[in-house]
Design a protein around this nucleic acid. Structure first.
Length: 890
RNA sequence: AGGGAUGUAGCUUAGUGGUUUAAAGCGCUGCUCUUACAAAGCAGAGACCGUGUGUUCGAAUCACACCAUCCCUACCA
């Protein structure tokens, strides 16, 4: 069979993913094995795969594939999140394009459109994950708004309400005028902006005097109900009891005094707009001021404002400034920097707005969740996030959980016409309950709250309800087999930015409903940035489409590429071009390294496959190489396992990479490779051949979590396989005890080989010319002599008790080696080399001797350390005397 | 404004008081198409570990200050 010279990833990817699916290798059902479980952070139904998903899901897949091979019952639960605001916005826009207004539709009609949209587009991202090789149990695919999952959300709402954790009230909330809904504190992104600070004159009633206030939001002037100054402020003390005239609407409002005011800022006078600023609202409460809501929910000037009605808030701002300037009421305008809140979902400027909302009291429920992280029940990786977590949990505000949307779980609160409220599941129950408060109740007047709950109020149940949606109703003790088996899950892999949004809240819900945290470890990935350190985003145009990268380099290469330099919690500076356009080629050195690695392994296979088995005896070098590689493999595997256990993913990958490239390919395969004689390969002995196949299989196994497609392809080529076989379900290799002395000896072999190669390089001696090497030692033979002969291409490797004349020399550890090279020796070069080495050794010796001469070191340092230094000293001395002798002989 | 994190070769990282005078991968330079792989092989150059001051017999590693970058929290109109 002709084997392609280069690995073709596309072919393997299209072959093996369907194979895995067909044989249900991803599927998990409870059994007697120990479970290993990951629930996916459900991507939005509106989402498409981006680099963040790429990183995140590769890590999850590596963890789950390795766990599966280690004999755990591995279960990775996939699914999507309904994303209220984003999805509703998408559907509203889609309808608008068809000329349909949301307000023209009934709730049911709208939800039908939304569901259709979800059916059509909501699964795209999951299909994309398959291209990556994600080994999710697709039979368990969940959706946060499916009927059973939604019912659990409603049950939780009712339960928490009955426990007194949920309340309804008028509060200042973050209003998204584009999404036309409240959003939580966590969904507001504050960004620095340069704004105009407008100094506006407010005339004092019945006087020609005026007071100047500074504002960045002139469009809220119509909502002003006072001007506030500091009671100690000498400039304004005389205004006590006076009123001033609000411009535009010419309303007289009181001048009030409060220590809240910062006298230094602006003019020390603040216009008070209780409906549009949280602090003004508090001031208004304190001073019993009226509230005038000057804005409509969609961010336009309201009827109540009395002027500029219907104008957009930003247009109104400009217009008002212009009009005030014309009236001579603007004293000056300054440019200032301030922070402006934007909606995470729609990017609209957030408007503080008073409104009636539902809240979850966070005080009590958050305590067990804080404790779980502090006492190590939940480990955050890296640990540095514990501080951040603690800070947030100790300063947590009540959570606004209602959203003025239709796409989501409708709040199970019911009202009558007299202002009574009950919380329960069905209208029938509500009627009964309301009757106890209102004896004249007519069933038809009972209405349900039109709002839905925050999406996070549903996804915080994710690790529970993906297994048993009924757990809230039945209680943890009656949970189904799945939940009992898989919960608590093991690892959660997610981005630090949703540590509070989601992770903290899942712990809260887990603690509340099962008494247990939903996972043991939370691995927080870095943020994927470009080479300038900017977060990759659509709007910047610096984010490559992962599918394009996969098409170019192959999925395995990308998986390896993104993890090569991404330690936990540190951002990943990805190296694709700064601007992704159709013209610039999509290039990434990281991915290239990944694809070169795939090709390297592929070619190692080609070599092995080309071996011809013959009736020959195993060579000494092959036997020695096998022993060495078995030891080396175990030694490195132990390190790799340890790195995994510490979630040092990049390190585990790098160690694996070097084990394969350097040890397996560059040393092992070179050592066992049969000789070429007269342009023909000699046959290999069966023992070495079969051992090599088995070692190759071990090597494939340890890289399989990273490169599932390539390894599956080779798994089937390297040996005969049954019809249902897969490397996916093979066993992760065991660590065996290793011979440290032997490993150390081979390190010397590597150095000898390097030294000989270096001599060839310097003397321009062809790699084909065989050389002779002598080791100055009392020994007469050691295990790896034949390996040295082979790798360094020697005619002989022998031992001598005296120095060899007419030879160049080198040292490995403290042993001297000679290479007779009479015709190549150039004593000047030799001298130079020796002097350079001698200088280094003398410098080193000095640094050691300084330490040893220091009495305080000798008396204070641990005895074994002093011993070590003495050993260093004697080694250096022996090297120096040997070097000096060589110099003398030249 | 407050809090936190990070700063080690051109890039990405490892190293958290003494295992050679700082390690690796990529990149770079030079040489080699040697029959698995030029998507390769071989060799080499390259960092006084952000800056400064301390603690210590000894500091990349600990402390303090400063600088830079990033993140989080906060109502400065």
């Amino acid at each position: 069979m002709e084997i392609a010279k280069t690995y073709n990833p596309q072919e393997a990817e299209s072959k093996w993913y369907p194979y895995w699916m067909e044989h249900k290798f991803f599927k998990s059902v409870p059994d007697s094995r120990t479970p290993y479980t990951i629930v996916i952070p459900p991507p939005n139904v509106t989402g498409v795969l981006h680099m963040g998903h790429m990183l995140n899901n590769t890590i999850q897949d590596v963890l789950i594939r390795r766990a599966r091979m280690r004999g755990f019952n591995a279960c990775w639960v996939p699914g999507t999140d309904h994303a209220s605001i984003a999805t509703e916005a998408k559907v509203v826009k889609l309808l608008a394009d068809k000329g349909i207004k949301k307000t023209d539709l009934s709730r049911e009609e709208f939800l039908k459109y939304a569901l259709d949209w979800k059916e059509k587009y909501g699964g795209i991202i999951l299909e994309q994950l398959k291209k990556l090789g994600a080994s999710c149990d697709w039979d368990r695919t969940r959706f946060t708004m499916s009927e059973d999952m939604s019912e659990a959300v409603i049950d939780v709402f009712i339960d928490l309400y009955n426990k007194g954790h949920i309340y309804r009230g008028v509060r200042m909330v973050n209003w998204d005028p584009q999404g036309m809904t409240a959003v939580s504190d966590e969904e507001v992104v504050h960004k620095e902006a340069s704004s105009k600070l407008v100094f506006v004159k407010y005339m004092i009633e019945g006087s020609k005097e005026y007071i100047t206030v500074a504002t960045t939001r002139p469009e809220t002037i119509m909502g002003d109900t006072a001007v506030c100054v500091h009671p100690e402020d000498e400039r304004y003390k005389h205004l006590k009891g006076k009123k001033c005239i609000v411009p535009v609407v010419n309303r007289a409002v009181p001048v009030i005094f409060d220590t809240y005011i910062d006298m230094e800022f602006g003019t020390g006078a603040l216009k008070v707009t209780p409906a549009h600023d949280i602090n003004d609202f508090n001031l208004g409460q304190k001073h019993k001021l009226p509230v005038i809501d000057a804005l409509t929910p969609d961010g336009k000037i309201s009827e109540a404002a009395g002027a500029y009605v219907g104008m957009d808030r930003f247009a109104a701002r400009k217009q008002i400034i212009k009009d005030l300037q014309e009236q001579g009421l603007v004293e000056k305008i300054e440019e200032i920097k301030n922070k402006i809140g934007y909606s995470e979902r729609t990017n609209a400027v957030i408007e503080p707005k008073l409104s009636m909302q539902w809240f979850l009291k966070m005080g009590d429920v958050s305590k067990p969740a804080l404790e779980a992280v502090m006492n190590g029940e939940v480990k955050l990786i890296p640990e540095k996030f514990v501080n951040t977590y603690k800070h947030w949990m100790e300063n947590v505000h009540d959570w606004c959980i209602s959203r003025q949307l239709w796409w989501g779980q409708q709040i199970p609160a019911w009202y009558d016409s007299k202002g009574n409220t009950v919380v329960c599941k069905t209208k029938a129950e509500a009627v009964e309950l309301l009757k106890t408060k209102n004896s004249e109740l007519k069933p038809e007047e009972v209405t349900q709250d039109p709002d839905v709950v925050d999406t996070w109020f549903s996804s915080w149940l994710w690790p529970l309800t993906v297994f048993d949606p009924k757990v809230i109703q039945k209680g943890w003790d009656n949970a189904n087999e799945d939940l009992k088996y898989y919960y608590p899950t093991n690892d959660l892999v997610t981005a630090p930015e949703i540590l509070f949004f989601w992770v903290a809240r899942m712990i809260i819900a887990g603690k509340e409903y099962t008494g247990k945290s939903p996972f043991s470890n939370v691995y927080l990935t870095g943020i994927v940035r470009d080479q300038l350190g900017r977060k990759m985003s659509k709007s910047l145009g610096n984010s490559p489409d992962p599918l394009d990268l996969i098409a170019k380099y192959g999925a395995d290469a990308i998986r390896v590429g993104v993890l090569f330099s991404s330690p936990a919690g540190n951002d990943l500076m990805f190296d694709t071009p700064l601007e992704i356009t159709d013209e610039t080629p999509l290039e990434s050195k990281y991915c290239e390294q990944g694809s070169k690695f795939a090709n390297k392994i592929w070619n190692a296979f080609r070599l092995v496959k080309g071996f011809e088995i013959g009736k020959v005896k195993q060579s000494a070098s092959a036997a020695a190489a096998i022993t060495w590689f078995e030891n080396r493999f175990s030694e490195q595997l132990e390190i790799i396992n340890d790195q995994y256990s510490k979630y040092k993913m990049s390190d585990a990958l790098m160690t694996t990479y070097k084990l394969i490239w350097d040890d397996f390919c560059a040393y092992y395969l070179e050592a066992i490779k049969p000789e070429f004689v007269d342009g023909k390969s000699m046959p290999i002995d069966p023992e070495t051949y079969y051992k090599t196949i088995s070692l190759f299989e071990d090597v494939l196994k340890v890289i399989h979590p990273w490169m599932p497609f390539l390894t599956e392809e080779l798994w089937h080529l390297v040996n005969k396989r049954g019809p249902k076989d897969s490397i996916m379900i093979s066993k992760w290799p065991e660590v065996k005890s290793t011979d440290a002395k032997l490993l150390k000896e081979f390190e010397a072999v590597k150095q000898i080989v390097t030294e000989v190669r270096s001599i060839r390089q310097k003397k321009q001696i062809s790699p084909n010319e065989k050389l002779e090497v002598f080791e100055k030692s009392d020994a007469s033979r050691s295990t790896f002599d034949d390996v040295v002969v082979k790798l360094a291409n020697l005619s002989s490797f022998s031992y001598t008790k005296q120095k060899v004349e007419g030879a160049t020399s080198f040292m490995v550890f403290t042993t001297e080696f000679f290479v007779p090279l009479a015709k190549y020796i150039n004593s000047d070069e030799e001298k130079e080399k020796l002097i350079k080495e001698l200088d280094y050794e003398k410098g080193f010796l000095k640094s050691v001797q300084v330490k040893l001469a220091n009495e305080k070191f000798v008396s204070n340092a641990k005895p074994e350390l002093v011993e070590k230094e003495r050993k260093k000293e004697s080694d250096a001395l022996s090297k120096i005397s040997s070097l000096e002798e060589q110099l003398k002989n030249l």
